[in-house]
């Protein structure tokens, strides 16, 4: 098993007050604001946040694609800014929604090509490619041109590419973006097995899917507008919310204004999911005490909204996020 060379600190990944500022002619954006994270060897660590939270910026710095404006970042004990070549030898990056290679080449040809970037012998590479294709269940498409693969199979190919070099630290940037439920589930379970059962390495995952972070990660850092708001195991983060009341309400409108809740005392936060197909909005409201909730219902009725369903909900990671920022992931800008 891989041992971090930064032995005195015992972390595979560590960032200290990481800041990244993007400047353009008309604006300055602080994408990361003093982010300090420590990830242990063998951990599956999730960065959870809405689009624009700074997740991709963070992962780009750790994978040597971007320099921090200030602060320090270490991967496998190596400084990402000063020892980028050493970092590259032990990592791999898989980004969701990306082309995993050249469209004109077949799946296996693409994998062979990428294996050569890591110095594998052709024979070893072919064996490993065959194994990964079988494991990820796309061996029947080995000779199919990459451009003709469906999104799901492209992403399997992408993951296979990321695992070809047997990385010690695997970076996954929204790995299941745009995938169907079954393919996502299969990929998640493969990654968990890779890190936990086979003990192949450490995983840093960015996602904006709550369930994904909940299902896969040992620990999760919740990030918003470049700042880490909380960092713990999904269970502990959810346990911390037990004192609050979370209600799910379905109302018969997609246009109603729920901003009154922002100023209402006792409301910790809320999220809204609008469905144009059913012309309904599902509100998830977190309050300190149950009586506050009856005031909210009264306000909704004042707006002549038909309440279709009400039920109490168990805390999820989304609720953790709502409790920290007062809103859900909806309505965020693109990253």
């Amino acid at each position: 098993m891989f041992v971090c060379s930064w032995s005195e600190l015992q972390y595979c990944i560590e960032t200290k007050d990481l800041v990244r500022i993007f400047k353009s002619k008309d604006q300055t954006v602080k994408a990361l604001d003093n982010v300090s994270v420590s990830i242990e060897e063998g951990e599956i660590f999730g960065l959870l946040g809405p689009n624009g939270a700074g997740k991709t910026t963070f992962i780009k710095i750790l994978t040597t694609l971007l320099l921090p404006t200030s602060g320090e970042a270490y991967v496998g004990g190596y400084n990402v800014a000063k020892e980028s070549n050493k970092v590259r030898k032990i990592i791999s990056l898989v980004s969701g929604g990306e082309n995993p290679g050249y469209g004109i080449l077949s799946a296996s040809e693409n994998l062979w090509f990428f294996s050569q970037l890591y110095g594998l012998s052709s024979a070893a590479a072919k064996e490993e490619i065959k194994r990964l294709m079988v494991d990820l269940d796309f061996d029947e498409y080995a000779k199919t041109r990459m451009s003709r693969l469906s999104t799901g199979y492209k992403q399997r190919l992408n993951l296979a590419r990321g695992l070809l070099n047997d990385p010690k630290i695997l970076f996954l940037d929204e790995p299941t973006l745009g995938l169907d439920v079954l393919t996502s589930k299969k990929m998640r379970s493969y990654i968990v097995d890779w890190a936990k059962k086979e003990k192949k390495g450490t995983v840093l995952l960015t996602t904006h899917y709550m369930a994904e972070a909940d299902e896969m990660c040992d620990r999760v850092a919740i990030i918003d507008r470049g700042r880490t708001l909380a960092c713990d195991s999904p269970l502990t983060l959810k346990e911390n919310l037990k004192e609050n009341v979370i209600m799910r309400v379905e109302v018969s409108s997609v246009q109603a204004d729920f901003s009154f809740m922002e100023k209402m005392a006792g409301v910790i936060g809320f999220s809204q999911t609008r469905s144009i197909q059913t012309d309904t909005t599902t509100l998830k409201v977190m309050v300190h005490d149950e009586p506050i909730f009856s005031k909210i219902l009264a306000k909704l009725e004042e707006q002549k909204l038909k309440i279709l369903a009400i039920n109490k909900a168990e805390p999820t990671l989304e609720d953790v996020y709502i409790s920290l920022v007062g809103r859900g992931f909806e309505g965020e800008g693109a990253e």
């Binding site: 994978t63 694609l65 590259r88 990056l93 980004s95 990306e98 469209g103």
Partner: peptide
């Protein structure tokens, strides 16, 4: 533009 440059830049080559 096609995303493969990122793969090159992350590789130790």
């Amino acid at each position: 533009e096609t995303g493969t440059l990122e793969t090159y830049l992350v590789a130790p080559i």
